[in-house]
Computed example of a mutant assay.
Amino acid sequence: MSAEHFSSRLREHALKYIRDFFEKLSITLQIIIYLRPQADYIESSYSTEIKAGSPKVFKKVMEQYQSQSLRYDYEQLIDLWASFFNKDSINIIPYEKSSIGDDIRLNFLSAIGVTELSGLDLAKAKLNEKWSNPMLEFARLANARMTHITGQQRLDFLTFAQEIIDIELNPQPSHLMTIEQIQRSYGILRKF
């Protein structure tokens, strides 16, 4: 089983249920947790909100995220999981290219011992392309002002806008957070 939201949504009741369920089946679990640097995780979460239609400004969203300590305090998160499962069964992998390579799917398959890949279709597809900061701000403003554009029409409009922004502005990769905000977030959100 794999789900991105296991870390952000499962709490004591759900973890106890999972543990008890697999114990009844005499299945020993191996838990693999990918941990992304908190600053990257906050920025990625914000980007996901904007892509989904949120008009929120980054400052307000960052304050909201920092109040969710269990989601971003990895020591607290791992301690919670370790209180229900054998700590030796928890394998932590940094969610960074230097640790996982170019394809997280291959890293995950390797981590669970799958070596025969010939029957799998692992075609490269950019399903979650990172938007530049100018594109995120454009989309945020569009979300706030153009609520009548929804569904595929909204996606087509934003895809068109992204092409123009990328060509005209040629934005360079950068963080939404300032260096001070990143340092402050690591002070508030302990790095595991």
Rank of each mutant, 00 (worst) to 15 (best):
S44T: 09
V57R: 13
S69P: 07
K51C: 05
Y46I: 01
E43D: 04
V61M: 10
D73P: 00
K97I: 09
K87V: 05
R71Q: 11
D102T: 08
Q38H: 07
T48D: 12
S44L: 02
L77P: 10
P94E: 09
A52P: 05
V57N: 12
F58V: 09
L70F: 02
D88G: 01
Y74A: 10
Q64M: 14
K60E: 13
S47R: 03
E96W: 09
Q66M: 10
D73W: 00
E63W: 06
Y95R: 03
S47D: 05
S83H: 13
D73E: 08
F58T: 06
K97C: 05
T48H: 15
Q38M: 03
E96L: 13
K59S: 15
N91F: 12
L77K: 15
Y74V: 07
N91P: 11
A39S: 11
I100G: 06
P94D: 11
Y46F: 12
L80M: 07
I92H: 09
I92L: 11
I78E: 06
Y41I: 00
S89V: 05
Q64E: 12
Y41C: 10
I90V: 08
R71N: 07
S67G: 10
F58G: 03
S67I: 02
L80G: 03
I93E: 05
F84V: 09
Q38S: 04
R71P: 01
Q68G: 00
Q68M: 03
K60N: 11
I78K: 08
K56F: 12
D102Q: 15
A39N: 11
N91K: 13
V61D: 12
E63K: 13
S54L: 01
K51N: 06
R71V: 08
I104W: 15
S54Q: 03
S83V: 04
I104C: 08
D102K: 15
Y46C: 00
P55C: 12
S47M: 06
Y74H: 14
V57G: 09
F85Y: 12
Q66N: 10
Q66I: 03
P94M: 06
I90K: 01
K59G: 14
D88P: 00
D40Y: 13
E49I: 04
V61F: 14
N91D: 14
I93Y: 02
M62G: 01
K59Q: 14
E43P: 04
I90A: 05
P55R: 03
K87G: 03
Y95D: 07
S83C: 11
A52Q: 13
D73Q: 00
Q38N: 08
D102I: 02
Q76C: 13
S83M: 06
K97A: 10
A82H: 05
Q64A: 11
D103P: 05
D103L: 01
S47I: 02
D103M: 02
K51T: 04
V57Q: 15
E75D: 15
F85L: 10
S54A: 14
K87N: 06
I92Q: 05
Y72C: 00
I93K: 01
N86V: 02
I93V: 12
K60H: 11
Y46A: 00
Q68W: 01
E75A: 14
E43R: 00
Q76T: 14
G53F: 08
F58D: 04
M62T: 07
S67E: 10
V57A: 13
F85N: 09
S98H: 11
Y46E: 01
M62D: 10
I90W: 13
I100R: 01
V61C: 06
I50H: 02
S83L: 06
S47N: 07
K51G: 06
V61R: 03
Y95A: 07
